[in-house]
């Protein structure tokens, strides 16, 4: 991996993580969906750069797929669930400071455990040449998990799920050359899930924790 590539990849990966924290702290639904859009575009940019660096066309096709499926279709289906007069739609009582600190503790602990326990036992080599860069997809994954666990809105929980998917794609992009067919099928799978979820969102805007225990 060239130094130039690393200079580009690290800030882009950092920006992806920032969008994750932005979505975590965002009360309003529409900006949250836009946050997911930005995150997906950044992911596509990373895939594109990897394509140019490695000369593998699969990465470039993957970037196009991400922009079309994640960037436009998923954003479209999610935003369709919000009526035009509901631009103020938001989740009440989102305590940013509290969520950020807990999320920070959770993400750092999880990432450190993965690094010290899992990565010390198995041999992993990133195609970027720096195994440390895998810390970004891992952190994104756990941040997505925390987003699902910490928020009550159905929208936020779908966002958390998409964020986890983005983390897996980012992990795959950094870790090894990808079988494109699998990636494409995962994308379509998530798209189908989001289409179904957009119906659930209209039916049920928030999920209280106790409700899941009822029959």
């Amino acid at each position: 991996m060239s130094a130039f590539g690393e200079v580009l990849l690290l800030p882009l990966s950092s920006l992806i993580l920032i969008t994750a924290f932005y979505m975590q702290g965002q009360e309003f639904i529409r900006p949250m969906i836009r946050g997911q859009l930005v995150q997906s575009i950044l992911l596509a940019a990373i895939s594109l750069i990897m394509g140019f660096i490695t000369g593998d066309y699969d990465f470039i096709i993957l970037a196009v797929l991400i922009v079309v499926l994640r960037g436009f279709l998923i954003t479209y289906f999610l935003e369709r669930g919000i009526r035009k007069d509901q631009s103020h739609l938001h989740e009440r009582q989102v305590s940013v400071a509290y969520l950020f600190i807990i999320s920070l503790v959770f993400v750092l602990t999880a990432v450190l455990i993965v690094y010290s326990v899992v990565f010390s036992g198995i041999r992993t080599e990133s195609i970027t040449g720096n195994r440390g860069i895998l810390v970004f997809p891992l952190a994104l994954f756990f941040q997505g998990l925390f987003l699902i666990a910490s928020r009550r809105t159905t929208y936020a929980q779908i966002m958390g799920y998409i964020e986890e998917e983005n983390a897996i794609v980012l992990f795959a992009v950094f870790l090894l050359p990808i079988p494109l067919l699998i990636e494409a099928s995962v994308f379509l799978d998530v798209l189908a899930l989001v289409v179904i979820s957009s119906v659930v969102v209209v039916e049920k805007f928030t999920h209280e924790r106790v409700e899941e225990l009822r029959g």
């Binding site: 924290f21 940013v96 950020f100 993400v107 750092l108 720096n130 970004f136």
Partner: peptide, 23 residues
């Protein structure tokens, strides 16, 4: 909201400090 602002600054400073050590 001042607390949220400072929590953001704290989160970024500590997160990227640790990540840089890993990278």
């Amino acid at each position: 909201r001042v607390l949220d602002y400072l929590a953001t600054a704290f989160t970024f400073s500590i997160l990227f400090l640790i990540f840089t050590e890993v990278i």
